[in-house]
Design a protein around this nucleic acid. Structure first.
Length: 823
RNA sequence: GCGAGAAUGGCGGAACUGGCAGACGCGCCAGACUUAGGAUCUGGUGCCCGACAAAAAAGGGCGUGGGGGUUCGACUCCCCCUUCUCGCACCA
């Protein structure tokens, strides 16, 4: 059968044809009975908030599919699922603004995105799609919640939340502007104490740290997680309060400065504030506490702010020298870190120094820089370094590092503290006073307390009729049919918890659901997970380094402890695609700089667009979006298209001619493309394929006339189609068919290279004189050093340069270079 | 402030463990084929100097943000500095 050879790759017909055929034949359907080795390749699923997929999503999904297709041809059965992270604030806000029910707008968005995802031409098996907002899914999110609850990892406590007094609602941190205003109405946002649900992720801090040693992740991501977990070894020190049975506990990493304490500071939100404020100080203290709690977390965290604070009228006693220390409150102390109280050592801590200056508090030097005698001069700034302890009683003269240990030991002896470890990582607040999320499956009973909804009653459905516009409390709280319920334990009147879960809960376990996305009597099949996990390759943006990627690891460890999964790390290998910027900034609807893929798809098609994304730079680097150069990729793919079609159409011949040079290029290209594709170096792989294509054109003549389909040309066509296939799947599938094959190219093994054929017989040897390039000559590969030296000295140019000068040394790098050092 | 990374032609970007800097592509220049070309194909293209009126060549010099260093040899390794990006940010 003869085809007319189109000048350009006719993407519209070809891509539609293959997408349809792949779907019809179930080409990428997962097979549990396959005897091929599994490979679980996962991309971070999409968030249907009212936006369509933009170029950033394509950059995640297209190249990852290329990698996955490559692995398929290398013999793996690839599991490559996709789904939708459909609950969440943006979808709800969109609904509030447009008066559409979030279920409806989410459904529409998902439908649209599904169509977009199909055009990528990825190997998604839609039988395994998940939608976290569907009851079939969130039923099991609730099941996971109860798993944590039953294992003592979910609990309620009072916590500070952002509160907009005008909208009468709780706001997430990202809804509060940097000026501490409500994103929607602009009024000043305050803080409020509310009872919230927490997951005990902090209890897993050490295991989360340890696990990082066992996974192949980008170093910077592991570093970010380590930093976020923030393990800090130090000493807890107990300061009894004068005239009270209370004891203030502080955490310090500098126990060696204990004798330099001149006052204590507790956080404004500390429970001690109420009990320790002395008579006569109440009004001022209350005023200070209120004003500091109005500050946003961002403002409060600003280290450049003047250090405000107030004395509360009572004193603590130094555990070792029994000195009286005034107790202050100040908002530079964070209630949720350490013990929420610090011992202030102004001489040796920058913050305490600034505070002491501000409030005229004494400064006592107790650490000497090594080899400098202590003096009484006034300090200009705190001395934060280690040194030698001074004015420290029995510890004077000891070096800081040893002193910390000694002081810790002494405190432990007298029962006033001792060595301890704290973490920056805090428990995870998961309750949201919002509508569009998975309801928390808990019933509050006046008699039985906090009761789990029985598993048989899951899911706790989100009532559709709810008024979801915020008005002061959780929208679900005003749906009586939802709230009022009988207690599962005593049968008496009780109330459902009206909060929904943070969407990060939904996405913390979705990779466990994918293999059993349609299972309706369990969240997953343990045997399936045993086979599937861990995920062999996870690909997604670096912005999730300390959010999703940490939560998912936590869930995996909980599932592991409960015996559901074998490994305790979900993502064995992780890659971040770079971020595509637009006009120097991240794409966002508010900035109006979102670049949509549609115009490029219409003009060039899916394969060209995918290849262009991969060609334009290092995959992990990202960069500014530009469409300059997409025409070059179109030219390349069309050149391949014409070439392979010309070979297909040519008369068959048994001409046995073999071009050694072409063969060499062919095999070294296979090698390079194999290595580069495996390593996500798509840009260099594509450039090697361009070089091969250029070489073939030179070999057969640019007009592609008078060609014959010799064994060599047939081979070239099949290899080129094979190695390009993961990059341009539609194009290559079509070419493969035209080459006369009935099966899919993705069922063919990846082309093998012959290392012997990949090496050249001759190499160019560079000749340098004193390190400067002066001449070159051709030599057979493997020529011994002595011969290379002779060859170099025989060069005419070199002879004239070396003449009359003493040769001091000759350096020979085999097959590469000769450097003659002369005086 | 702390941590991580980056800086290479007009542009996007290559360069394995130190060994021909600028692969590949875009753009640009010239040419071929064409009624035509925003199609296709071929060649050229880092910068400067280069007895000349101009152009070109032989040849030479300079070049990977800046300054030092190690080395026969540095985009690559070490020290200092500048700028940019990202993350964290009063963590006691």
């Amino acid at each position: 059968m003869k085809h007319t050879i189109e000048q350009h790759y006719p993407f519209a017909q070809v891509e539609a044809k293959w997408q349809e055929r792949w779907a019809k034949e179930g080409a990428y359907r997962w097979d549990w009975n396959s005897n091929r080795k599994k490979l679980y390749c996962l991309v971070m699923f999409a968030y249907p908030s009212g936006d369509k997929l933009h170029i950033g999503h394509w950059y995640n999904y297209g190249p990852t599919d290329t990698w996955a297709r490559f692995q398929r041809t290398r013999g793996y059965q690839v599991f490559e699922p996709i789904g939708f992270d459909a609950f969440g604030l943006p979808a709800e806000n969109f609904a509030v603004r447009h008066g559409i029910h979030p279920a409806e707008s989410t459904r529409r968005n998902i439908d649209f995105m599904r169509g977009q995802l199909r055009t990528i031409g990825a190997m998604y098996d839609w039988d395994y799609e998940v939608d976290t907002s569907s009851p079939d899914y969130y039923k099991w999110t609730q099941w996971m919640f109860l798993l944590l609850f039953k294992r003592g990892l979910a609990y309620q406590k009072e916590g500070l939340v952002n509160w907009c007094p005008s909208c009468q609602t709780v706001l997430a941190n990202e809804q509060v502007t940097t000026e501490n205003n409500c994103e929607r109405c602009g009024s000043a946002v305050g803080r409020r104490n509310m009872r919230q649900w927490y997951f005990r992720i902090a209890a897993y801090a050490d295991r989360l740290l340890e696990g990082l040693e066992r996974i192949e992740w980008p170093a910077k991501t592991a570093i970010m997680q380590r930093h976020w977990i923030g393990r800090s070894e130090g000493t807890e020190i107990h300061f009894p309060v004068e005239g009270s049975s209370e004891v203030i506990k502080v955490f310090t990493t500098r126990a060696d400065t204990l004798f330099g304490v001149t006052y204590l500071v507790i956080a404004p939100e500390s429970p001690f504030v109420a009990s320790l404020t002395a008579p006569g100080y109440e009004a001022k203290v209350r005023e200070y506490v209120e004003s500091s709690l109005q500050l946003s977390e961002v403002d409060r965290a600003d280290a450049d702010r003047p250090k405000t604070g107030i004395f509360i009228g009572s004193y603590a006693i130094h555990p070792l020298n029994k000195e009286r220390l005034p107790i202050w409150i100040a908002d530079y102390v964070i209630g949720s870190y350490g013990t929420g109280a610090v011992m202030a050592v102004p001489a040796h801590d920058t913050r305490d120094f600034a505070f002491a200056r501000e409030h005229k508090l004494p400064i006592a030097k107790v650490i000497n820089p090594p080899d400098i005698p202590i003096d009484d001069e006034e300090m200009e700034e705190a001395y934060n370094e280690y040194g030698i302890m001074a004015h420290s009683g029995e510890f004077s003269g000891i070096a800081s590092q040893d002193g910390m240990v000694a002081v810790g030991r002494r405190l432990a002896e007298i029962g006033r503290g001792g060595p301890t470890t704290t973490y920056h990582l805090r428990d995870w607040t998961i309750s949201r006073q919002r509508y569009w999320g998975a309801p928390i499956p808990i019933i509050h009973c006046p008699k039985c307390g906090t009761v789990a909804v029985p598993l048989a009653e899951l899911p706790v459905r989100l009532p559709e009729a709810a008024e979801f516009a915020p008005k002061g409390k959780s929208p679900l709280a005003s749906v009586e049919s939802f709230v009022n319920v009988n207690c599962p334990e005593c049968g008496g009147r009780a109330e459902r918890d009206p909060d929904t879960m943070d969407t990060f809960v939904c996405s913390s376990w979705y990779f466990m659901r994918y293999p059993d996305a349609r299972l309706d009597d369990a969240p997953f099949d343990i045997n399936h997970l045993k086979y599937m996990l861990p995920i062999d390759q996870y690909v997604g943006g670096p912005e999730h380094a300390v959010g999703h990627l940490l939560y998912a690891r936590f869930f995996m460890k909980v599932a592991h402890d409960a015996g559901y999964v074998e490994p305790d790390e979900p993502f064995a290998r992780l890659k971040h695609q770079g971020i595509i910027l637009s006009y120097g900034g991240r794409m966002s609807k508010t900035k109006g700089n979102v670049v949509n893929p549609e115009p490029f798809l219409e003009k060039y098609g899916s394969d060209v667009f995918r290849c262009y994304l991969m060609f334009s730079g290092d995959y992990e680097q990202g960069g500014d979006w530009s469409d300059e150069g997409i025409a070059g990729i179109e030219r390349f793919l069309s050149r391949v298209w014409r070439l392979v079609n010309a070979i297909t159409a040519a008369e068959s011949s048994d001409n046995q001619e073999v071009s050694r040079e072409l063969e060499r290029t062919l095999h070294s290209t296979i090698r390079a493309v194999t290595n580069d594709t495996a390593a996500f170096h798509f840009n260099t792989a594509l450039s090697r394929m361009m070089e091969l294509t250029n070489a073939v054109y030179l070999h057969v003549g640019p007009e592609l006339k008078d060609m014959s389909r010799s064994p060599l040309m047939g081979h070239v066509a099949e290899i080129l189609t094979g190695i390009l296939a993961p990059y341009a799947p539609h194009l290559c599938e079509e070419l493969w068919e035209r080459l006369g094959h009935a099966d899919s190219i993705f069922d063919q093994p990846w082309p093998q290279f012959d290392a012997a054929k990949a090496v050249a017989e001759m190499v160019t040897v560079v000749v340098q004189v004193n390190g400067k390039l002066r001449d070159k000559f051709e030599a057979p590969v493997g020529l011994p050093g002595g011969e290379l030296e002779k060859g170099a000295l025989a060069c005419v140019k070199i002879r004239t340069l070396v003449e009359g000068r003493a040769i001091r040394k000759i350096i020979v790098v085999p097959d590469k270079l000769v450097n003659i050092v002369v005086s």
